[in-house]
Design a protein around this nucleic acid. Sequence first.
DNA 1: CGACCATTTGATATGGATCAAGCGATGTGG
DNA 2: CCACATCGCTTGATCCATATCAAATGGTCG
Lengths: 229, 229
Amino acid sequence: MLTQTAIRNVSQRDPATQPRRVPVPGAAMQTGTIELMGACMPFAANAEIYGENEPADYLYKVVSGTVRTYKVLVDGRRQIGAFHLPGDIFGFETGDEHAFSAEAITDCKIIVIKRRTVMALAARDNDVARQMWELTARELRRVQEHSLVLIKSAEERVAGFLLEMADRVPSSGVVELPMSRQDIADYLGLTIETVSRTLKHLENAAAIEVSKRRRILLRNRSALRRLNA
Amino acid sequence: MLTQTAIRNVSQRDPATQPRRVPVPGAAMQTGTIELMGACMPFAANAEIYGENEPADYLYKVVSGTVRTYKVLVDGRRQIGAFHLPGDIFGFETGDEHAFSAEAITDCKIIVIKRRTVMALAARDNDVARQMWELTARELRRVQEHSLVLIKSAEERVAGFLLEMADRVPSSGVVELPMSRQDIADYLGLTIETVSRTLKHLENAAAIEVSKRRRILLRNRSALRRLNA
DNA sequence: CGACCATTTGATATGGATCAAGCGATGTGG
DNA sequence: CCACATCGCTTGATCCATATCAAATGGTCG
């Protein structure tokens, strides 16, 4: 259990991309007020959005693209805590410093909101405060749910992951994965080899079909659900 | 990975113990206002406090004793999500239903607060709303931190657990564990045998000393911290 | 077309699970 | 107050799922 994943990229925030005040249209307006307060910023694939222990001055909302939040242990093992898809708000873990690091997996557009702005608003408008509580609670539930992988087999983990992704991008039947096998492995606490072999397993069992490497067809969801334990 | 832990007790909430309006003194008053709103209730060791999927009408604050929150998979595997010690508030996972079950590990006294009361108060007093957000965020961070066990070895898990417990009950040097080996195992995603062997390992390495089975002396914290990865 | 990188596939090793006794503390009844 | 039963825990032997090590393959992009 010593090596899991070496640190693979030490990308930096692109200094050229400064926040621009941009009215952001449509794009998942779950939390109405929020996006009006921020600037929309592009991030290139693999760019760092923020690092662990940096002051947590901003909140982030994904407009397009996918983000991973993760921690890296001293010896290089990496645990991905979450994938964030369009519409998701992240970076509100709590407190003064970020507990995790965040990177763009693909090219992303992300609304960046000053935390102070939100806090100030929350102090006046307790509807906003409630909304923030709500969001944090939802995230808590997600992480608690994810912590069950600890007691699951490789097959259960992968099946569960596919179902989770399918639920989040409801393009019934096909799951287009934005992340690499390594990302999946680090999210599930497995190795890429095991992820690969398990996908093949599921394919042999006629539960899925791996059409392009990152495009997966769910052939038999109830089989997957059964495996999800 | 099929059997981990069968369901071991199906204890019921003692119907004799009705909530009594009791002013609760001292005992960890971190969140001032909260405890004034609730009733203090005793729970016997192994009594159920609430079950998964029950309506989440209450919040809970531990006055004395220890509580475990957990989920059980269909086949009986159990994952303990948290241990709650005196002063801790739990049961605010979110939403309408509890995501986890909660049981008293030892005899407990617990303040039970109607969620609606808190919500109503939060709607008027946004300081309360902020406090709830704060608490939820703290819990989120704790769970995120715990999710790192996924990539840790047995030794790292156990060492980390001991340090965590030592931090929470700052009785410098000795850790009095209220929970069984099985509870520890289910919290760390290990078996009791592995927990036992690992404790022996740590003892042989002069990092700890197991004096009574549930009393552990931390002989060398920096060694433990080194193992914690 | 060629090089590179992500992924798959294969062979082997191993940490922790499982199976199976032992053991010691706690409690019970005689 | 002591023999005995019980329960929680430890210890030992063996097994297995997944990690690790090592190539082979194939897709992508210049």
